[in-house]
Design a protein around this nucleic acid. Structure first.
Lengths: 193, 193
DNA sequence: GTACTACTTGTACCATCGTTCAACATGAAG
DNA sequence: CTTCATGTTGAACGATGGTACAAGTAGTAC
C-alpha cells in the first residue's frame, strides 16, 4: 500500500463517526439528553441503528463523544478570544449573551451534558474544559485567584440565568457585570490578603 | 360527619402523596432524574406501581411535585437566613458550601430538576424560586440591581463549581468571594450609573 | 483472481416502561 | 345493616429501547 495514500475505508469511518456525533447533538438540542437513543440518533443521521452501535458500543460512549465535541468547539472559541481579541471580556460577554438567542439550544445541550458529568467522573474533565479556558481568560485581567474563581462562577451563573429567563440578553449589560467583578483587580494588582 | 373530625382516608392520602414525593427524591439523588419511573419510585416507596399512578397520573406530574418540594424547603431555609440571621451572607455561604459535602446529592437533584425546567416552561417558576429568594437576600446588602443580579449568578455558579469539583468547599472562602462581589455597594449605596 | 479488513444491514431477543383496567379493601355516612 | 367514596392491588397490553448476531457489501492488499 502506497504510504502516501490513506485507507479510503478508514476515512469514511471517521466521517461516519463525526456524522453520528453531529446527529447526536441535534437530538440533544431538540429533545434533551434523555432523548438520545441508538434509534433516535440513527434516524436523525439517516442510517441504521446497528451502525451507531458499530461506532459507539454503548450509549455512554456516544454521550461522552458528544459532550467532548461540544466543549471542544466552545473552548476553542474562548481561546480565540484570548489570543486575538483586544478586549476578551467583551468578546466573552457576547458569547454568554448568545445563550439566550440563537445559541440557546447549544447552551442548553451543554448544560444537560455537563449535568450528566456530575454523576460520571469520566465526563468531568470534558465538562470543566470551558471553565479552565474562562479562568485563563480571567487571568489576563487579574492576578487575584479569588477574582478568577469568582469570575468563572459568575459567567456560569449568568448563562444559567439567561437559560431560565426567556428574554434576550444584553451583551453590554453582561460586560458591565463582568467588568465590575474584576474592578480593582488589574493585570498588575496583587492577590488580595 | 362531625365537622371537627377529618376524614381519615384523606389524611392517609395526603401522607401517601408525601411519601411518594420523598421516594421520588431518593431516586433522583441516587440515580438521577433519568432514573425516575413509576416502577422505580414505587419500589423505593415499598408500594405498588399502580398506586403511584393513582396519585400522579403522569411522570411529569411526579417530577413537578418533586421539584416543587425541593425548592420549597430550599427557599424556606434562605428566607430563614433573611429573617433571623444577623449575617445572612455568611449563612448563605454555608448553605452553598454544603453542595460539596453532605448536601451534594441534594444539590445535584436540584440541578437536574432545574435543568429539566429549562425545557418545560411549567417548571420554571419553581426552578426560579430560590433565585428570587437569593436576590431578596442580596437586596438587604445593596440597592444596586446589577450587583443583585451578579450576586445571584455568582451563587449559582459557585454551586456548580463545587458540584464539578470533588474537594469539599470552604465556607469562609465562599463568604469572602460573596462579600467581594458586594464590595463598594452597601445598603445605602446608590445604583451604579 | 483470492484473502483480508472495514463497513453496513435486517432481524430478532429480552428487558423495561407508561398506562389501562377490573377487582378488592376499608373506612365513612345514613 | 347498606351505600358510597377513597384507597389499593395484580395482571396485562402495547410501545420503546439496548444489544447481539449472522449475513452482506465494498474497498484494499497481494
Amino acid at each position: 500500500m502506497d504510504e502516501h495514500e490513506v485507507d479510503g475505508r478508514k476515512v469514511r469511518g471517521v466521517r461516519r463517526r463525526a456524522q453520528i456525533i453531529e446527529a447526536t447533538l441535534t437530538v440533544v438540542r431538540r429533545d434533551g439528553a434523555a432523548g438520545v437513543t441508538h434509534r433516535s440518533v440513527a434516524k436523525e443521521a439517516g442510517i441504521t441503528t446497528s451502525l451507531t452501535l458499530y461506532y459507539f458500543a454503548t450509549l455512554d460512549d456516544l454521550l461522552v463523544a458528544a459532550l467532548t465535541s461540544v466543549t471542544d468547539t466552545y473552548t476553542s472559541r474562548i481561546r480565540q478570544l484570548i489570543d486575538t481579541g483586544d478586549d476578551p471580556v467583551q468578546g466573552l460577554a457576547h458569547l454568554i449573551a448568545e445563550s439566550g438567542g440563537s445559541g440557546r439550544e447549544r447552551a442548553l445541550a451543554e448544560r444537560e451534558l455537563s449535568t450528566l458529568a456530575a454523576r460520571r467522573p469520566a465526563l468531568r474533565p470534558a465538562a470543566r474544559g470551558w471553565r479552565d479556558e474562562v479562568a485563563e481568560l480571567a487571568r489576563t485581567q487579574t492576578r487575584d485567584p479569588d477574582a478568577v474563581e469568582a469570575f468563572v462562577a459568575l459567567c456560569d451563573g449568568l448563562c444559567t440565568a439567561i437559560l431560565l429567563d426567556d428574554h434576550d440578553a444584553d451583551p453590554d449589560h453582561i460586560r458591565t457585570m463582568l467588568a465590575k467583578s474584576l474592578r480593582g483587580t488589574g493585570p498588575d494588582s496583587e492577590p488580595s490578603p
